[in-house]
Design a binder for these strands. Structure first.
Length: 552
RNA sequence: UGGGGUGUCGCCAAGUGGCAAGGCACCGGGUUUUGAUCCCGGCAUUCGUAGGUUCGAAUCCUACCACCCCAGCCA
């Protein structure tokens, strides 16, 4: 049985390759460079690669494309593995590293030299640029292009031996300096970099470029479908050139799809890194970051991220997905799965005058309105309660469905109350509202037939607990912070984080496990912070607010 | 002015010669002890534009237009 969802052009290609016997098993790979945290765009690639392998019973490797030691680190290797696992995927066997194949790559480099298909070039970066030509003019051959295989082999070995300084020479493929495809104008295979590599230490001073490594990595691992983003399309002829001219063990094929763009969001490692480095956010996992770690801390669930990736599809056209789709994916998941609870963000005292001092009654409330199997929680109902300041007005028009002086409102999962008077200070600020409980309204309408106009949430002022609530909003106030004609830092939303220290939660909430998500009724979905939450000092992050169609 | 791509509703996206799926968003209406959810209904005589082929075209042909990517010893 085929899943209709997840169907895309790559799915179709693989299906046919399998049916035609072009491949016997599908092998994909997710190949991040460990130079940053994974973001929502990577999630799309992960879901695609692992998802395809999964639906066709094949396998997917996690491979670190670690060919540039200067930008990479162990921190990123660790976080990437954690994020892939969190999303719910398992890679085949052990984690792969391009650096494990360095010796093989080197031998293949010598092979090309011997074949007369690669040469050592002494041009410096600037000279090389001049020789490369432009988009409309062909390049010129390097003066070192015709060195003999013997001389090239000698030079290459000495490059490897560390005899030459960084940047002094490179190994280039001998292809075509007049090619309209810039990637074919004698591309660089190896550059000299005296750097300590996080995996190989000081073993190497020459490192292969992406182009000379990627296809060969795929071939070594038996990858059948090497899926990357559109900007690598121009590299495909080069990818194929290496596969064709090298004695590789298999012949992988490259396919490209359109990378994810989200409005109100930046997804470029450079910009995300800048946000972290300049302290605009608290780190790569700040809940406002579009990183996997950030979304996790924000309260997104793995299922919601996967659902989102399924919703947006996979094509070769590049578009900009509305962040509202991501928000829908998480609301949809949490609506059906998150237990309900009550939290008052801006407390206002509500004194129930017809209840005796010290009154306490434990009310049972459903954890979920339509899923009784999720059980119940107990809510202490006392003489003094806290309601939200926004939920009371001395007077209001008929559109206002909350508590109004002299009128009634239903306290969620509890009784109907009627506001009788207001307590104010000299300045006229409301200090408290006095109301009376209408008897016998637990699960019933008032016997006198005067129904409440609405329902508001509440917390016991004496039994509730104080909590820190972090209200997050989108990091950028402009739909296209990425637009090239200005600085994305100028598009930051100054109100992307509001910390509410004096929020009050129903007592049971203090015992929430870190990363546990809830719907705070009438407010939104919140998650107990992964790191900062504790029963003694509860901390909740706003994942996403409830849809709000009230224009009040 | 070189090469490689892409253009279907505000956004994403099916569709591959037989008469425009779906999702998001939006707008109505109903249910509701969450102004949530849920339910019902509306939302492209038209597929970048202009020609052409055909009984018939988003799908085939031609030309044009727009946008994206490529001149790192980054990936």
């Amino acid at each position: 049985m085929e899943t209709r969802a997840g169907n895309n052009f790559l799915h179709a290609i693989i299906k046919e390759d399998l049916e035609m016997g072009r491949v016997s098993e599908v092998v994909t790979r997710f190949p991040p460079e460990p130079n940053g945290y994974l973001h929502v765009g990577h999630a799309k690639s992960i879901c695609l690669n692992f998802g395809l392998a999964e639906t066709f019973g094949g396998r997917c490797n996690l491979r670190f494309d670690d060919t540039n030691p200067e930008k990479e680190s162990q921190e990123f290797i660790d976080s990437i593995q954690e994020d892939v696992r969190w999303l719910g995927y398992e890679w085949a066997e052990e984690v792969r590293f391009a650096s494990r194949y360095f010796q093989q790559f080197y031998e293949w480099a010598e092979y090309l030299v011997v074949q007369g298909k690669a040469y050592v070039c002494d041009l410096n970066a600037e000279q090389a640029r001049e020789h490369r030509g432009t988009l409309t003019e062909p390049g010129r051959n390097s003066p070192y292009r015709e060195r003999s295989p013997e001389e090239n082999l000698d030079l290459l070995r000495r490059m490897k031996a560390g005899e030459f300084p960084d940047g002094s020479r490179v190994l280039r493929a001998k292809i075509d300096m007049a090619s309209p495809n810039m990637n074919l104008r004698d591309p660089i295979l190896y550059r000299i970099r005296t750097a300590v590599h996080h995996q190989t230490g000081s073993e190497w001073v020459i490192y292969p470029t992406y182009d000379f490594a990627h296809g060969q990595e795929d071939a070594i691992e038996g990858v059948t479908h090497s899926i990357c983003t559109l900007e690598f399309e121009d590299h495909r002829p080069l990818y194929d050139w290496f596969i064709e001219h090298l004695p590789v063990p298999s012949r992988p094929r490259q396919y490209e799809f359109g990378r994810l763009n989200l409005n109100y969001t930046v997804t470029s490692k450079r910009k995300l890194k800048q946000l972290v480095d300049e302290g605009v956010v608290s780190g790569w996992d700040d809940p406002r970051m579009p990183t996997i770690a950030g979304m996790r801390r924000r309260g997104f669930t793995p299922a919601s991220v996967r659902k989102f990736c399924e919703m947006i599809g996979v094509t070769r056209s590049d578009g900009v997905v509305d962040v509202a789709m991501l928000e829908h994916a998480i609301r949809d998941d949490l609506n059906t799965n998150a237990p309900r609870a009550m939290c008052v963000l801006k407390p206002l005292r509500l004194v129930l005058t017809n209840l005796p001092e010290g009154h306490r009654e434990d009310l049972a409330a459903a954890a979920h309105p339509s899923r009784p199997e999720l059980g119940e929680r107990s809510l202490p109902f006392t003489r003094e309660l806290l309601i939200d300041t926004e939920d009371f007005r001395e007077e209001a028009n008929k559109k206002y469905k909350r508590l109004v002086l002299g009128k009634r409102v239903r306290l969620r999962s509890a009784y109907v109350v009627e506001a009788e008077s207001v307590e104010k200070d000299e300045a006229g600020n409301i200090l408290a509202v006095h109301a009376r409980v209408i008897p016998d309204t637990l699960g019933e309408d008032p016997a006198d037939g005067v129904k409440p106009k609405g329902v508001i949430h509440w917390v016991s002022a004496t039994e509730g607990r104080q909590a820190t609530v972090r209200l997050y909003d989108r990091l950028f106030s402009d739909p296209a912070p990425d637009r090239g004609d200005r600085d994305f830092m100028d598009c930051l939303n100054p109100d992307s984080l509001r910390v509410v220290e004096g929020a009050w939660i129903e007592p049971g909430l203090a015992a929430a496990e870190p990363e546990q998500g809830f719907q705070f009724e009438r407010e939104g979905y919140f998650v107990a912070d992964r790191y900062d939450h504790s029963p003694e000092a509860p901390v909740f992050n706003l994942t996403i607010g409830l849809r709000d169609t009230w224009e009040g």
